[in-house]
Design a protein around this nucleic acid. Structure first.
Lengths: 346, 346
DNA sequence: GTGAAAGCGCTAACAT
DNA sequence: ATGTTAGCGCTTTCAC
């Protein structure tokens, strides 16, 4: 062979479109069209190309395609922390929904290193990824700048949207109302001293759930006194600690609304260790409806987050934002109060 | 302006390297080098370029770069099912480890649609992604073909490697030995009728764990009779059903080794409903050490999977396979027996 | 119906 | 120390 052949020979391990073109005896444009199933290609030619591609083990190079099309069919999902059991479930549904729309997903944890998330906003701005799904209240600073600058970007936030991002499409539930519903249920069961285990004080959803508790108590003419509020957090251990605190304070509550299921798990475990029975001595309710809440002893009354709907709607909105240049909007999904033994009068 | 300008003007919303070059008054190669921090660029020039890039909100287009470099810095993680609590934890560690190595991760569920996983093998073959991390025993058929054809690909399998893939680098624990250790512990506690809740009969890990049970019983001169084996599965409900079956059979076991934590959860819940006390009437042990196992009532004795080590080693191996053309090998990680109240003699 | 050719944005020889 | 240039693999006008 002479100096250099313009096309790849069998030496190269990865077949390109040019290889397929040569094998099928057509041009690369025909291969491209045939593989894409585009109109002006007769079935006979198409078959020949498809066959050649198959035999050569050919697959399009996604980067070449993305570069050319200026569209990658990849969306990024920013996840604060997969250890929180809400996220795997959500992510699973996002994955399925995205693939149904022809998108692949990249993921990145934001809790580990917040600066990392800025890098991904850059990717979005650089056109390397088509859209971003925010599944937490945290918002990359770079993104805030863009919003402030009035840029419309394909971004959807779900699960616990922040108020900082009013211009950004959101898919969420009415957190205040959902918390209200739980506490309303407890009040209707006849409990009089209904305490609240608050989440992290700056977390937007924690604040909303606390507001729901206060509103429901007010509606039932019950006190929301400071001795009924316990500053906790979202972890099992926060729930345990709250139980210790509860023991110290005078006038035990007869029911507790926890700001999430995990803290309820810890609370219940610790209350039992104190020799109390749930719900006989003290009723407990949570928020999230994690899968384990149904098999807990006792099964936990809680609010079911519509994680599947959230995922599907989020992806659908994001797709519309990317492909149809849709407008930003806010979707409120229905939540569901799940009543189980932990809150029922014996 | 004349017909067409060769470079982009401010009209384009996305700045390219050419834009930065123009702003900084240098060529694109200088920009490329400066941004990459490559040697022969004086600090002064570099600063100017970096500044220009920053002000223009420039970010490299990953597809152009990947196309050029024939390397994407993306690895794909195939996850069978995020609903299984092992995977979020594993994925979290994989994400962190990958990013520490400069890789982004794409994920795809395989349980939903097995054919989808073939598509990703194509991507690997097409050079669109750099490597694949298999986190389950399922292996895409297309991949099997490649292995059979003797191709060496950057693939690592972990968590529950299959025997079909002997040529592929694996990072795992000794499942048989780990199961042996649990049952050995139960036997040493003095339990005589140690039953086993088997997982899905074709799951490689389920088979291994059963073997460990049999070996340990044999070592202690205890029977592994059919009436002590319960065909269950890996879900909470499988555990519940096993408890029903247990009630029917004569001669209740005094201890049960469950093939995973989730089935142990269901078993314990159902045993309690039958009025039995754990571990007083019947001891229970699991396998996996999910986070809830520590807060269960009673806390569950189990085997801790070294998920973090698995993730880190897997990523490290994959990186070596990709970048250093390393050889395939097998890594066995240490497991840990976690003894808690559910298995202790009262 | 099919092919030639341009060019997406980048990096790395190869000049200078 | 910096610029010029080729080309990664693909899609898509535009010609024929």
């Amino acid at each position: 062979m002479a100096k250099r052949k313009p096309t790849l020979t069998s030496k190269s391990p990865i077949p390109t479109m040019a290889d397929i073109a040569r094998i099928a005896g057509v041009s690369t444009s025909t291969v491209s069209r045939a593989l894409a199933g585009l109109p002006p290609i007769p079935e006979e030619t198409r078959q020949r190309v498809v066959q050649a591609a198959k035999e050569a083990g050919y697959a399009v190079n996604r980067h070449a395609r993305s570069l050319r099309l200026k569209r990658s069919k990849v969306i990024l999902v920013l996840i604060p922390n997969l250890a929180n059991p809400n996220f795997p479930d959500l992510l699973m549904h996002i994955d399925r929904a995205a693939h149904d729309c022809g998108y692949d997903i990249m993921i990145a944890h934001t809790a580990i290193d917040p600066r990392r998330s800025d890098r991904y906003v850059d990717e979005l701005l650089a056109g390397s990824i088509d859209g971003v799904l925010l599944t937490a209240s945290y918002c990359p600073p770079r993104l805030l700048e863009c919003i402030a600058a009035g840029r419309r970007l394909p971004i959807v936030r779900t699960l616990s949207p922040t108020p900082d991002l009013n211009g950004v499409t959101a898919v969420q539930i009415d957190e205040v109302q959902a918390a209200y519903d739980v506490v309303d249920h407890l009040a209707k069961q006849g409990y009089k001293r209904i305490a609240h285990l608050g989440g992290p004080p700056k977390e937007i959803v924690a604040i909303a759930r606390r507001r729901g508790w206060e509103k429901a108590l007010a509606a039932h003419g019950l006190p929301a006194t400071p001795d009924l509020h316990f500053q906790a957090g979202f972890t099992v251990n926060d729930g345990r600690r709250a139980a210790d605190e509860m023991k110290k304070r005078a006038g035990r509550p007869d029911a507790v609304f926890c700001s999430n299921d995990e803290s309820a798990y810890g609370l219940i475990a610790a209350l039992k260790e104190q020799g109390l029975r749930v719900p006989r001595d003290i009723a407990v309710a949570g928020f999230d409806d994690l899968s384990f809440s149904a098999v807990l002893d006792p099964p936990l009354t809680t609010v079911r987050l519509p994680r599947r709907d959230m995922a599907e709607q989020s992806v659908r909105k994001l797709k519309a934002l990317i492909e149809d240049d849709a407008d930003n909007d806010n979707t409120i999904l229905a939540h569901e109060l799940v009543i189980r033994a932990s809150s029922l009068r014996s």
